[in-house]
């Protein structure tokens, strides 16, 4: 019970922090409104999707270093195929890219289970593989995106202008995929193998199969993240973005314990928005972007240190 409250205090704290930051933004920039929120949400969308994917794998006791490379593969595949395609075709293409993401993740997971090589090493090797695949598909940024796809994340929701579509998109996608899983046996199994694989195995959890599913889900969210890059820029980007480090940091900030078994998805998503808001505020204050990167990194490291100290204290008492 105490642990449950503790976990939720962290998420609540993050929500309060985000609200305070948005308030601060309003103070810095009095005309910050719908369009500001919209650009914030659109910039945060690929980061948030990558973080959700990473969070699922970390909850299941793993880590996926290849996430940014998988996003690149999804982004270029979507952009190359959609270039000049009709709306009907592009729906099929989007579904195909999502399946491709599932497949890439499942390959990562299967390799980890079959080869018994540590997950860090496997996904490190697969990082090179997926990078190579993305480069083979598209050598330089290019391709196109269907108009309806681009409209999915741009602007506000009709009727409620201040609510960015990107946030709604993120909420719907995450809820539709994660909530049924979380409520089912599979969700319990994901947490179980993250918490203690041996105990999970002895309680009859198919550990290998569950681990593959966790990585497949991560691949699915990576594909969504890759598509969201294509959505907002309109082209495919074969060079992986800075999503690996950012997603690991947001997952840790969001209260998911590296090593698995604890945490949810809401915390990491809030953490993504906090980090993006900090960056936006620094830009609004016309801080040199490089200095902003230093400040952002320092905040991330300081929070992680603070969290680690708290965790150690908690373990001792």
């Amino acid at each position: 019970m105490k642990r449950w409250i503790e976990a939720n205090t962290w998420t609540l704290g993050l929500a309060v922090l985000l609200a305070a930051l948005l308030l601060l933004t309003k103070l810095i920039q009095p005309d910050f409104g719908a369009s500001g929120l919209d650009s914030l949400a659109r910039a945060a969308l690929p980061f948030a999707l990558a973080t959700v994917g990473m969070a699922i794998v970390v909850i299941a006791g793993g880590i996926d270093l290849s996430i940014a490379a998988m996003m690149a593969v999804a982004s270029v595949t979507g952009a190359v195929l959609m270039d000049g395609a009709s709306d009907g075709q592009s729906v099929v293409i989007v579904i195909g890219v999502l399946l491709l993401g599932l497949a890439m993740g499942a390959i990562n997971g299967a390799l980890i289970v079959v080869s018994k090589v540590p997950d860090i090493v496997v996904t490190l090797a697969m990082l090179f593989v997926w990078q190579g695949v993305a480069l083979l598909i598209l050598n330089a940024p290019g391709g196109g995106a269907a108009a309806w796809l681009r409209a999915l994340s741009a602007g506000g929701v009709p009727g409620i202008d201040w609510l960015p579509r990107a946030v709604v998109f993120l909420a719907i996608v995450t809820a539709v995929i994660w909530i049924p899983i979380r409520r089912s046996k599979l969700g319990l199994r994901l947490y179980a193998i993250g918490s203690d694989p041996l105990a999970a195995f002895r309680s009859g959890v198919p550990v290998g199969q569950t681990r593959i599913i966790a990585y497949a889900l991560c691949g699915l969210f990576a594909a969504l993240g890759g598509l969201s890059v294509t959505m907002s820029t309109g082209i495919g980007e074969p060079i992986p973005g800075p999503y690996l480090l950012a997603s690991v940091a947001a997952v840790v900030l969001g209260g998911v314990v590296l090593g698995g078994g604890r945490g949810g998805l809401l915390g990491p998503i809030l953490a993504v928005f906090i980090l993006r808001t900090v960056r936006m505020d620094l830009t609004l204050l016309s801080v040199d972007p490089n200095v902003a990167a230093i400040i952002e990194g320092t905040i991330m490291v300081a929070v992680v240190m603070f969290g680690a100290v708290l965790a150690t204290r908690g373990r001792k008492t």
Binding site: L111, S115, V117, V121, V122, L124, A125, M126, L127, F128, V129, Q131, G132, V133, A134, L135, L136, I137, N139
Partner: peptide, 12 residues
Amino acid sequence: GGRRILFGLIIL
């Protein structure tokens, strides 16, 4: 691209 794929697969 092919070089990176081979590099990764061989490490693995």
